[in-house]
C-alpha cells in the first residue's frame, strides 16, 4: 500500500523517458514532475506522443529508456509494482471502454470487488456515491449501450473513481463526443479538479485548460516543447511551434 504523502515525494516523476515503436521514436527524453494535487493539461498535434506519454504512466505502454516513479514507486518490470501503481492511478479513455456486458453499476463495482477485495455492499455504496457525483445515479441499472456518449464517459469517470485513485489520467476524454455533450463531461472534471485530485489530461479543450490547469504542456515530435501556466502559455509563449498551435486551436 502506498502511504499518503508525507515525504514531499511528487505524485509523478518522469526522467529522460524514451519510447520506441520498432525504429520509430515516439518519446524523446521526456522530463516531468507532477506534485500532488497538481493539474496538468497536455496538448499538441496528433502523433506528438501525448497519449503515449500518459499511457506509459500506468504501463499500458512499456517505456524503453529513462525512469518513471509514480507515488514513489518505481515503474519497472516488477509486476507487484505495476499492480500497485495501477490501483492508485485511474484512467479515462477517449472511447470510454466501458464493459458492455455489465450494467453501469457492475462496471463501477467490479474492480473494487476483485482488485481491492471490497465486500459487495461497500463496493455498491461507493459506486452509487460516485454515480451520484457524476450526476447519473438513475442510470445505474442500464447497460452502457443504452446511454449517450456523454453519459458513458461520465460512467467511465465514476468507474475509475470507485478505485479511489490518487492520480487520474484523461486521454482525450471529450474527443469522441458529440459537441453538445462535451460540457457535461468537462463539468465533472472541473468538479474533480476543485476537490484536489491530481490530474493529467490530454485534451484540446483550451477553455478547460485555462480554467483548471496549473501547467499546460505542449508536445510535438515526442518532446515537451513548452511548459507554462495557462495564462503565460496562451498569451506569451516563447516557442514558435506552440504559438502556431495555440492560434490554430483558438482560431475559431
Amino acid at each position: 500500500m502506498i502511504s499518503t504523502n508525507s515525504t514531499g515525494e511528487p505524485a509523478l516523476r518522469i526522467e529522460n523517458l524514451d519510447k520506441y515503436y520498432g525504429t520509430f521514436q515516439a518519446l524523446r527524453g521526456i522530463n516531468l514532475s507532477v506534485q500532488r494535487g497538481e493539474k496538468i493539461v497536455v496538448c499538441g498535434p496528433s502523433g506528438s506522443g501525448k497519449s503515449t506519454m500518459i499511457r506509459c504512466i500506468n504501463r499500458l505502454e512499456q517505456h524503453n529508456g529513462g525512469r518513471i516513479a509514480v507515488l514513489g514507486t518505481e515503474l519497472n518490470d516488477d509486476v507487484g509494482n505495476i499492480d500497485e501503481i495501477r490501483r492508485e492511478v485511474g484512467m479515462v479513455f477517449q472511447h470510454f471502454n466501458l464493459f458492455p456486458h455489465m450494467t453501469v453499476l457492475e462496471n463501477c463495482m467490479i474492480s473494487p470487488m476483485i482488485v481491492r477485495k471490497q465486500p459487495r455492499a461497500q463496493a455498491e455504496a461507493t459506486a452509487r456515491h460516485y454515480l451520484e457525483k457524476v450526476r447519473i445515479p438513475e442510470q445505474a441499472m442500464k447497460y452502457p449501450s443504452q446511454l449517450s456518449g456523454g453519459q458513458q464517459q461520465r460512467v467511465a469517470i465514476a468507474r475509475a473513481l470507485c478505485m479511489q485513485p490518487q492520480i487520474m489520467l484523461f486521454d482525450e476524454p471529450t474527443s469522441a463526443l458529440d459537441p453538445e455533450m462535451v460540457s457535461e463531461v468537462l463539468d465533472v472534471m472541473v468538479t474533480l479538479a476543485s476537490e484536489g485530485m491530481t490530474m493529467i489530461c490530454v485534451t484540446h479543450e483550451m477553455g478547460f485548460a485555462r480554467r483548471v490547469a496549473d501547467r499546460v504542456l505542449f508536445m510535438d515530435g515526442g518532446e515537451i516543447l513548452e511548459e507554462a501556466p495557462p495564462d503565460e502559455f496562451f498569451t506569451s509563449s516563447r516557442n514558435e511551434r506552440t504559438r502556431q498551435f495555440v492560434s490554430q486551436v483558438l482560431g475559431h
Binding site: 499500458l60 471502454n97 482488485v115
Partner: peptide, 21 residues
C-alpha cells in the same frame, strides 16, 4: 475491442481477472 483489456488493466485487474471477467 482492445480497449476492453486496456480498461481492465488500468483498473488494476490481473491477467486471469481480465480474462475471466
Amino acid at each position: 475491442a482492445t480497449g476492453q483489456e486496456e480498461a481492465a488493466m488500468a483498473l488494476g485487474m490481473r491477467y486471469w481477472q481480465r480474462i475471466s471477467r
